[in-house]
């Protein structure tokens, strides 16, 4: 496996049996995500976007095929190692933000670092920096219920970046936001991608995200329908 890939899937498939019929949520997906790439997955509801998201995120086991994250075959990992992988290598952003309601913004951002065992001083400092980076420097001690949707998603982005993951997985990050706030989030993600070289994998319906992506993959019925390249990732794709 070339180390150019942040994520690689080989013949990835996931079948469910629902009410006696076999549903092929994913059916042989071969996908390479380059480091520093902004990749969008488009497709109608039920096309398998979220299933793909779960597979790459190490949340679900495939029926067939393999997923490599940083050249680690995640199908070979046990639950404990998967937790480690999710903690260190993957950052998640959800449609519904999924912040911990009882913790403040800064505590939410420190949570993955607590799980990773970062000392308190370092993690508080880092969380503050991350929150300042996403433009919430003045909201450190607000609870999620005291923040707007867009602000909550910013906290979620800061949280996703906490352990310097290899890849950020975003499942419809703008799905619950209005147009303008959605655009702000997209711009923020793009900024992170360009300035810090963070790899972003984004499942979406939102055409605004497509505009900023390096590559867009359309999937339908669990298969890659077409791939569109918008812009090359400078550093890695030239190799």
């Amino acid at each position: 496996m070339s180390s150019d890939y942040a994520v690689e899937t080989i013949d990835l498939a996931k079948y469910y049996t629902l009410g006696g019929t076999m549903i092929k949520a994913l059916d042989g997906i071969n996908l390479q995500i380059f480091r520093g790439e902004y990749l969008s997955i488009m497709g109608p509801s039920g096309a398998g976007k979220t299933t793909l998201f779960n597979m790459i995120g190490g949340l679900d086991k495939p029926t067939r095929g393999k997923v490599f994250i940083d050249n680690i075959d995640i199908s070979k990992l046990d639950a404990y190692e998967l937790a480690w992988l999710r903690c260190r290598k993957i950052g998640y952003i959800f449609q519904t933000f999924n912040l911990i309601p009882v913790l403040t913004a800064i505590e939410n951002v420190t949570l993955p670092m607590i799980f990773a065992g970062t000392p308190k001083k370092i993690r508080m400092e880092k969380a503050r920096k991350l929150l300042e980076m996403v433009g919430l420097g003045d909201r450190l001690n607000h609870k999620p219920s005291e923040l707007s949707g867009g602000q909550q998603q910013r906290v979620a982005i800061a949280r996703a970046l906490a352990n310097n993951p290899s890849i950020i997985l975003a499942d419809e990050p703008t799905g619950n936001l209005d147009l303008n706030t959605g655009l702000e989030i997209i711009t923020l993600l793009k900024k992170m991608n360009e300035e810090q070289g963070i790899t972003i994998f984004c499942a979406t319906h939102d055409y605004k995200i497509v505009e900023v992506s390096n590559r867009i993959i359309w999937i339908r019925d669990g298969k890659v329908e077409k791939t569109e390249i918008r812009g090359y990732v400078k550093r890695k794709r030239e190799v």
């Binding site: 937790a83 999710r86 903690c87 999924n98 912040l99 911990i100 949570l111 799980f115």
Partner: peptide, 14 residues
């Protein structure tokens, strides 16, 4: 439920 799921997603062990 969701909170626990999120924590596990972020790498919390059982």
């Amino acid at each position: 439920y969701k909170e626990i799921g999120t924590m596990k997603c972020l790498g919390a062990k059982d």
